[in-house]
Design a protein around this nucleic acid. Structure first.
Lengths: 256, 256
DNA sequence: CGCCTTCTTGAAGGATCTCAAGAAGGGTGG
DNA sequence: CCACCCTTCTTGAGATCCTTCAAGAAGGCG
């Protein structure tokens, strides 16, 4: 299976090197990480709560939600994880699981042993730094979700989530105003993520559809008026740290 | 001023060593970090948005809020930072500021240069690991805030925030059912943190007071029926990772 | 004592929820 | 290829939690 892991790890590496500077040797070390692929059915927890974990999960295809649960069963998704994400990278340094991970659609993951990641991180401090930095981007997204759930009405809330996801998926390229991307997620999942009820999500989507802001059919999202949606949702992609030019990539921990 | 920084850094070090294993030498390195103290007036931004930062802020006394802003001025506090917190530790690895920090009451901070922190982290990988782990605890708190804001009604929301803050302040010791701690924060701040309006916070506090769950006067919070409040707020302190016994402290990145 | 912030109270309005049930869609087996 | 089933989407009507607006009371500080 090793011959398959490499191209998948490349995607993860691309993510790291978009924000961090890594040497050729360090990059090779990451690409050589072991891992074994696994297919997960939709709506299945693949990292249940309360257990110690000994591996991290790299998403190859599909989409994953990080769930927190309420006593009365009300669910809250606190993060979407997209292909190329190491969705529980934090567990490398903190193997006590505090939230569950669930596949939202059929999802392929690569389970990468903590031991291997730790060995690379220990050997190459710049890799540890890059991983740490990646975790911080996830944290910035969490903070933005608090604002989303706390301070925006249903239309802006859903719009913002779509803008964020489109950006993270790399669907927002060039200056096209017509964005299309795959989002294999149900309206109920969207409700869990935005802290709304499925019913209200449905009505809100209709409202957005009525203004040609969102067109969502068969798991394919189309945003025909990107600029208008960005404005409605007050979406500012800065927190995603996605557009870092080469001059913004960092490598700061050097012994001396 | 150096003779003053050491005892303050001790508090930060205690926080780190409560979850990570650090050698005597590593601990000394942290205690020797330079820094200069500064007093911040209430309601003042001391780390404004959108700038590159070259230092992190250790809170010595007072309380700090991490603010995200809306276009229309609606504010959301995404985190409280308490004495002993390095409130923008993440900036060590990601110096682009994405959220503002504001003192909620008169606050004393210690500004610690990134350069110094990075030097220690580079020299001692276990320190980098401990810092990274500390950031992950903050991230877990962010995730819990999403649940709080998204899925709990006003009473539970405020109750949960109080439970969390009491726990983080170390006010929940032993099996006393009567918790008292200082919380120099206005009801408006509480509204910004819970995504409610100040008016509704006020009414909710009255409701909690009516059931003897919360007693809040002159910036001093008293929780006379801790167990009942915990249940009402469905507060589970696991995510705070505060009670890690010695056997749970970690040191995992070792070259080899 | 006076000012400014913070807290408190009332009444009306609105965004979202709850409950319930029907329609549509997608996959599976005969 | 059709029939069936189960999930997902859609719709309606009433209830509610929280907000908005406005204004007065209380508290802290110079």
């Amino acid at each position: 299976m090793a011959h398959l892991t490499r191209p998948n790890l490349q995607r993860f590496l691309d993510r790291l090197t978009s924000r961090s500077v890594l040497s050729h040797e360090e990059q090779q070390a990451i690409l050589s990480l072991p891992g074994h692929a696994e297919q997960i059915a939709a709506n299945r927890d693949f990292v249940p709560l309360g257990q110690r974990v000994d591996h991290a999960c790299l998403i190859i295809a599909g989409i994953v939600g990080r769930f927190e649960q309420n006593w009365d069963g009300a669910r809250q998704i606190t993060a979407f994880h997209l292909p190329g994400d190491m969705c529980d990278l934090h567990s490398v340094v903190q193997p006590v699981r505090t939230s569950a991970l669930q596949a939202l659609s059929v999802t392929t993951i690569l389970r990468v042993p903590h031991l291997a990641i730790r060995a690379v991180a220990a050997r190459y401090p710049a890799v540890a730094e890059a991983l740490w930095r990646d975790c911080m981007v996830d944290a910035a997204i969490l903070a933005e979700w608090i604002v989303n759930v706390g301070r925006r009405d249903a239309r802006a809330r859903i719009g913002h989530l779509l803008c964020e996801t489109a950006t993270r998926l790399g669907a927002v390229a060039g200056d096209s105003n017509d964005i299309v991307f795959d989002l294999p997620v149900t309206q109920t999942h969207l409700a869990d993520a935005t802290a709304l009820t499925p019913v209200h999500v449905n009505r809100t989507l209709q409202s957005l559809r009525g203004e040609a802001l969102v067109d969502w059919h068969q798991r394919v999202v189309r945003l025909p008026r990107w600029d208008a949606l960005v404005e409605l949702s007050e979406f500012d992609p800065a927190y995603l740290q996605a557009d870092a030019g080469p001059e913004q990539r960092l490598r700061i921990l050097q012994a001396g």
